[in-house]
Design a protein around this nucleic acid. Structure first.
Lengths: 191, 191
DNA sequence: CGTCTATTTGAATGTACTCAAAAGCGGTGG
DNA sequence: CCACCGCTTTTGAGTACATTCAAATAGACG
């Protein structure tokens, strides 16, 4: 149950068995059916979730519809960090795309872990450092290259995404209309 | 010289005078004339730079021209973190927009500081956590709202930007043609 | 004062969008 | 097991909006 989280953490900094036991003690395992919401627009997000199995999406909603901010597959984290940090109402909704096995880490417990386990700051510093680089690269791609190129890059990074996530959501993530992605896909298949 | 860096750090976690002295000992102050490059596409980025005075931009170049990834004003950091982390050739160039006073922190020294000063991991964890949230919000804005709305938001966040940064660069940052931003500006001035 | 760069303006072009409708696919219940 | 229903994906046609290209104007800097 905790092996994926364990290997994720110790890949960043060593942890003793006792230290990891402290983590296990506060992590809350949750199973979730597809299409279930973990967080709804307007609530304060008081947790980060580690994905042990399945996949999820976070998205904002405006008058034009949904805009997908993030997909989270196995071995990744998802949250509304802005709401988490500021403790203000979330602008995002987080929803399971598939049936999921999740590990909840509540902010209150997380702050405790930062106090109890010196390596925890390093683990999360590296986590955020990597996440920052990844999202900055995605932003740069959004501003530099075409939707078609971004779609190809997404497939390279997550080849099973087309089996697991509806085209509709992928289009939203790429910032284009579903019809446009359908046409891109058609184009690509004829090459 | 180090007061802005000092207040930036201690706003995130307490540091003793001895600890900050360790930091001062490895930080390299540099003055830079406008339009000077700190990092050129192809080099490995071995530093992060803290902006004490002035402003800079990082950008990628492709067949369509430059794409500005980040502006850095006073009290902010700039680097090519992807190159820094992976120690591979940078795809970004970093250039001073104004005459600048900068504080260089080399990776080698930074790793030492992480070992010597326990609070350093926390400071940088918070730094990256905030940076991650900011860039994710910018990405979401890029996918959700119009260039005009993003321009207005940018002005709200950094009101002096129009005095300090050419329209040309702001347009690149927003991901639109300079002509389009000129038209947006004209529109706004008539309201 | 002259040169180089930045900004504005205009006109034509093209790409992705919207709207509408049909086809495909999966899941559910009879 | 099959038929139906809802949702996703595809296809088509017309439209709108930002872009490109070109040129003029304005501004900055030596």
């Amino acid at each position: 149950m905790y092996s994926l989280l364990h290997s994720n953490f110790i890949s960043k900094a060593p942890l003793t068995a006792d230290e990891f036991a402290l983590i296990e003690a506060v992590v809350k395992p949750v199973k979730l059916k597809k299409k279930t919401k973990l967080l709804t627009n307007g609530e304060v997000c008081r947790f980060s979730v580690f994905v042990n199995k399945g996949c999820l999406r976070s998205y904002s909603i405006d008058n034009k519809g949904e805009h997908i901010v993030q997909f989270a597959f196995e071995n990744n984290w998802i949250s509304d960090l802005y709401s988490y940090i500021t403790e203000t109402a979330s602008h995002l909704t987080i929803e399971a795309i598939e049936d999921c096995e999740l590990l909840y880490l509540y902010k209150q417990d997380m702050e405790q872990l930062y106090m109890q386990i010196p390596a925890m700051e390093r683990i999360m510093r590296l986590q955020f450092q990597n996440a920052y680089v990844a999202v900055q690269r995605r932003l740069n791609a959004t501003l530099s290259i075409t939707a078609e190129e971004r779609y190809i890059a997404l497939l390279a990074a997550q080849p099973d995404i087309t089996q697991r996530v509806p085209l509709l959501h992928i289009a939203s993530y790429l910032g284009i209309a579903p019809e446009s992605l359908s046409r891109i896909r058609k184009q690509l298949s004829t090459r």
